[in-house]
């Protein structure tokens, strides 16, 4: 069943891709092939591959339980928040929070997670910023 859904989604993607390609404004100065041909070929093969997946599906993979799925979703949300807040609060604080969260969710005790998170953050900061001189996001406090 998963593959049938996947194939159907792929087919929609191919159609959308083909439609989006046709929306490309062609320039008056174009080469013999033009900017549309290659993406159109891609859309066609993408569609065919999706059709085959739809019609001849593989056995279903083992999907995680709803709880685990929520877990992954939560991690994605945390990562998005991390990306958004990184320039605002600075590298050290954002990274400490994010890695403490991930460590905690992967099965470390809460208190230990905080320690590990802070240590990870400081460790990366020391290695990458102080030793290697990489530019990391610096927040209002300069770190």
């Amino acid at each position: 069943m998963s593959d049938r859904i996947f194939g159907a989604v792929g087919l929609c993607l191919a159609l959308f891709y083909g439609w989006a390609t046709l929306q490309i404004q062609e320039s008056f100065l174009s080469d013999a092939v033009g900017p549309k041909t290659f993406p159109l070929v891609i859309a066609v093969i993408l569609g065919l591959a999706s059709l085959v997946i739809l019609l001849r599906p593989d056995p279903d993979p083992v999907w995680p339980s709803l709880a685990r799925l929520a877990e992954i979703l939560a991690a994605v949300v945390v990562m998005i928040l991390y990306a958004e807040f990184l320039p605002v609060v600075g590298f050290l604080i954002a990274t400490a929070f994010a890695s403490a969260y991930l460590t905690w969710r992967l099965g470390t005790g809460p208190l230990q997670s905080v320690v590990v998170g802070v240590a990870t953050s400081i460790g990366i900061y020391v290695i990458f910023k102080l030793v290697l001189g990489l530019s990391l996001a610096s927040g209002p406090f300069g770190f």
Binding site: F91, T95, A98, S99, L102, L134, L136
Partner: peptide, 9 residues
């Protein structure tokens, strides 16, 4: 988590 953070960095 270290892998994730290093990727972001």
């Amino acid at each position: 988590p270290i892998v994730a953070m290093v990727s972001f960095v």
